[in-house]
Amino acid sequence: MTAGESLVFAGNGFQCPLTQLAKHYGAESGAVTDIYLPKWFAHNMPAIHVPLLIVMAYLHIRNCRRR
């Protein structure tokens, strides 16, 4: 699931495919994450989360191979 979402995100030019929908409903920047997150965190979400997803995938594969 996460891999599919990452592929959609990368295939859309590293922009959420729901950005246009958010703009249509009134978000000035097309982002709604700033509602509940600090601006610096919301702006850097891909840079923060992609390495975490890679580490998570590595650890999962490593644990599956140990069995």
Rank of each mutant, 00 (worst) to 15 (best):
M1H: 04
T2H: 02
T2N: 09
T2G: 15
T2K: 03
A3W: 03
A3V: 15
A3E: 05
L7A: 12
L7M: 09
L7S: 05
L7K: 04
F9T: 03
F9L: 03
A10V: 13
G11T: 04
G11Y: 03
G11F: 03
N12I: 00
N12T: 03
N12H: 13
N12P: 01
G13A: 02
F14M: 07
Q15M: 02
Q15S: 06
Q15P: 00
C16A: 08
P17S: 02
L18E: 02
L18I: 01
T19R: 14
T19H: 05
L21V: 11
A22L: 04
A22F: 12
A22C: 05
H24N: 08
H24C: 00
H24L: 11
G26R: 10
G26E: 08
A27M: 09
E28R: 08
S29Y: 02
A31K: 02
T33G: 04
T33F: 04
T33L: 12
T33S: 15
I35E: 06
Y36S: 10
L37W: 12
K39L: 05
K39I: 04
W40I: 06
A42N: 09
H43K: 10
H43Y: 07
H43G: 00
N44M: 03
M45G: 00
M45V: 07
M45F: 09
P46R: 07
P46A: 06
A47I: 05
I48Y: 11
I48S: 04
H49M: 15
H49A: 14
V50W: 10
P51D: 11
L52T: 10
L52E: 11
L53S: 11
I54W: 12
I54R: 06
V55D: 08
V55A: 15
M56F: 14
A57K: 10
L59N: 10
R62A: 15
C64A: 15
R65T: 14
R65M: 14
R66L: 14
R67Q: 13
